[in-house]
Structures are given as C-alpha cells and as structure tokens.
C-alpha cells in the first residue's frame, strides 16, 4: 500500500511537471497508441451507455432517408466524405480523422448514431448538432446513414436530394427554459466573445461581459433591456444595430427565448 501511494504520488508529480513545462504535445499529431486505445474505448462505452434509453422512431420511410441525404450533403460530407468522395482539405488535417461513414451503420445502432450526431464528441471536430438541427432532421440523417453501407460510389453520385431548409426552426410554445438556455449559449458560440457567469470557459473579452446582464438597463446601447427585446436582439442583431459586430447566429425563437431566460437570471 505504501509503495503504491508513493508510486501514485510520483506519477502525479511527473504528470504535473510534463504539463506545466509545456511538454505535453497538444498539436493535431496522432495520440500515442495507449492514449488512442484508451480514448476509443471510453468513447464506445460512453455512446453505448448514453444511447441505451433512446427510443428509435420508424426510419424506413424512403422520404426520410432522402431528406437525410440532403442534410448529409449540406452538413456532413465536407468532413466525412461519402462513397467515392474525399473529405475537403481542412478535414484531412484533423485528429482524429473524421470517420468514413460507409461502414459506421454496420457497427453502431440507430440510437447510438442519433446520440453521436446530436451530442457530438468533445476534443474532436465532431459538433453537437442538437441546436442546429431539429430532432426530426437528426433522425433523417440517421435514416440516410443506415443506407450508406449499401451504396456504390455511382449510386451515391446518382442520388437526388430534395431541396430542404437546412436550418433548425423551432417555435417556442412553452415557458422558456433557463437551464436549456444555458446550454444553448454554449452551442451558439456566445462563449467565444463574452464573459458569462455559470458557463465554464466563457471568459473572452471580445464583447462586453454579461455579469449582471439580467438587471442591466440597456441592450446593445440602444434598446431597453426587456425579455422581448433580448429575444429580438439575439435573433437578429443587425435589425437592432446594423453595424454591430455581434453576428446573426441563426438562433431560432425557442433557443433565443431559453437563452434570454438564462441571461435574465444573471443579476
């Protein structure tokens, strides 16, 4: 026991030295084999666990898969490629390399595919699509992925995708949900410009800090700070202030209302 503790202590001190000296290589080089297999194992276990309770809707409607194809071509193919289609150059520089998805549906169950597309993977390039795509669209992507293993390059190229609206549009019909808003703030990149209490890593000095925004008098220097005005500002900053550096992030009504509800709690 004594020896074990001494060994553990030495290991921790060693790790602290490596990290604080800056020797840990955070570049996009491939992991060491041990790190890679550990992370890959953790990922597979986590996906299985988190997807275990998800109910899968019927996915065999060809129209759903065609809609999934349209979304796939809009959002996925640039990183993942497709049968006979290479990823774009930027995706070739990523570690881990985005998976070629032609075989993925053979290894993963639909609920697992859905969970991965919805929630993404941290420290990889895989985004969480849950605030960018509706739930129906997430399932449509899964429906198309189930077809992928059966498509030759020629068949994939010949597939016609219907034109679809590829942005999430959800109307808010419920009471705004501040906790969901806190998560939406993370996934609409607010944290890359603002300091925001209650959100890990939100400490950027690009725009004004949001401590006390719930009781602040004004929004963007031009609007009285009301719930409705905050929703209006979040959804379309340039409509409020045409030359504002705050970009239009394509935030739908539901997300904007939930985000405004969270911001209102910061007093």
């Amino acid at each position: 026991m004594k020896h074990f503790l001494a060994l553990l202590g030495a290991g921790l001190i060693g790790a602290a030295v490596v990290v604080s000296a800056g020797w840990y290589n955070v570049s996009a080089d491939q992991h060491l084999a041990a790190t890679y297999y550990f992370l890959d194992f953790a990922l597979r276990r986590a996906v299985r666990q988190h997807a275990s309770e998800i109910e899968v809707p019927p996915l065999d409607d060809p129209a759903l898969a065609r809609r999934g194809l349209a979304l796939y071509r809009e959002h996925c193919v640039r990183c993942h490629g497709a049968p006979g289609v290479a990823p774009e150059p930027f995706a070739l520089g990523m570690t881990p390399a985005p998976a070629m998805l032609a075989h993925t549906a053979r290894e993963w169950r639909p609920a697992e595919l859905y969970w991965v597309v919805k929630r993404g993977f941290k420290m990889t390039g895989m985004p969480a699509w849950q605030y960018q795509l509706s739930d129906d669209d997430l399932w449509a992507v899964v429906a198309f992925m189930l077809e992928l293993p059966r498509l030759s390059p020629a068949q994939y190229a010949a597939l016609q995708a219907p034109p679809v609206a590829t942005e999430k549009v959800e109307l808010a019909d419920e009471k705004p949900d501040a906790e969901r808003g806190r998560e939406a703030i993370q996934f609409h990149a607010c944290v890359t410009c603002h300091r925001i209490p209650g959100i890990v890593g939100a400490n950027a000095p690009v725009g004004p800090p949001l401590e006390g925004i719930g009781s602040r008098g004004t929004i963007a220097g031009v609007l009285p700070n009301t719930f409705a005005n905050m929703v209006r500002w979040l959804r379309d900053p340039q409509e409020v202030s045409p030359r504002s550096a705050m970009p239009d992030l394509g935030i739908d009504e539901r997300d904007a209302r939930d985000m405004a509800a969270y911001l209102a709690t910061l007093r």
Partner: peptide, 28 residues
Amino acid sequence: RIPGVPAAYGNTGPPLDALARRVYLAGR
C-alpha cells in the same frame, strides 16, 4: 461599473473592467 472609481456600480451600460483587453467598443 468601473474598478477603482468609488461607487461605480451602475448597470445601465456594460461594465468597464478589463476594458483595455476588450476587442470592440460600442459593439462596432
């Protein structure tokens, strides 16, 4: 709100702490 200035607790406009590190003024 302005660090170092007595009684600067106003919250009509944005806080001015760390203003030298701020990237944009007046949002533009």
